[in-house]
Write a protein that binds this DNA or RNA. Sequence first.
DNA 1: GATCGTTATATCCGACAAGATATAACGTGA
DNA 2: TCACGTTATATCTTGTCGGATATAACGATC
Lengths: 121, 121
Amino acid sequence: MEKAIKDILVNGALKVNGSLWVEGNGKRFFGPGPVELLELIQETGSINQAAKKMKMSYKKAWELISNLNHMAGSPLVITSTGGDNGGGSAISEEARQLIAYHREMRVRFSKFLEEETQRLK
Amino acid sequence: MEKAIKDILVNGALKVNGSLWVEGNGKRFFGPGPVELLELIQETGSINQAAKKMKMSYKKAWELISNLNHMAGSPLVITSTGGDNGGGSAISEEARQLIAYHREMRVRFSKFLEEETQRLK
DNA sequence: GATCGTTATATCCGACAAGATATAACGTGA
DNA sequence: TCACGTTATATCTTGTCGGATATAACGATC
């Protein structure tokens, strides 16, 4: 009898997993990392705090946002320096749409992965 | 009117893309790289030549295979040193099954990505 | 104008990854 | 016994990425 895929691996707990992102012109544009960061910026109102919550360096967060803003037609993160509380950041309507879309997409992806995992058994 | 996602990006050519792999105990076990390598080993009968065709160093290929063989219950690549043509490698029946499975999975995944890309528009 | 916390940016440094190189072991066939 | 092409493995170097650090600019509030 033919072996099931799951019997090929030593230890059980076999699972299909993956990653999903949006590309523009073949370059990765919007993946799980940015989504989380944007969500946290929305929540905290600050790139700094958002980065800290993700345990990401400010530098990396800033570069990421800079890329996003450059690739997108209109900025996804709107920043202001100085002022009331030293400044802060907010996300644009476009960013909210992207987040919402990505979230829905992930739900469908989870289902897909679930189904694929079932097939292994 | 609400902007379509595709209008958020500067340049068109928007696309959903992703990557898929099999995990054992949370550790990545079998992704696109290994699949291609195994296929080339099957084709060429040699780790060396397979690695060259992928423009991968022999070292990396060997480490990859070593991992695979350790994670799997039975070796996926069977090697022999010395002899007729200096030695060579072949892939096991289990490896062939994994490849076949992964290929089918990728077909379904492509379809999924296609559908998701449609939704952007 | 001093203070504050943030954005914005440059520079330096260390760790890790990846490649390059070297070499041993192997077994068949000439 | 030697040559050959491959597997197997260790070691060294190099390049890249990320983190750490430093500092300027900013503008509301006091």
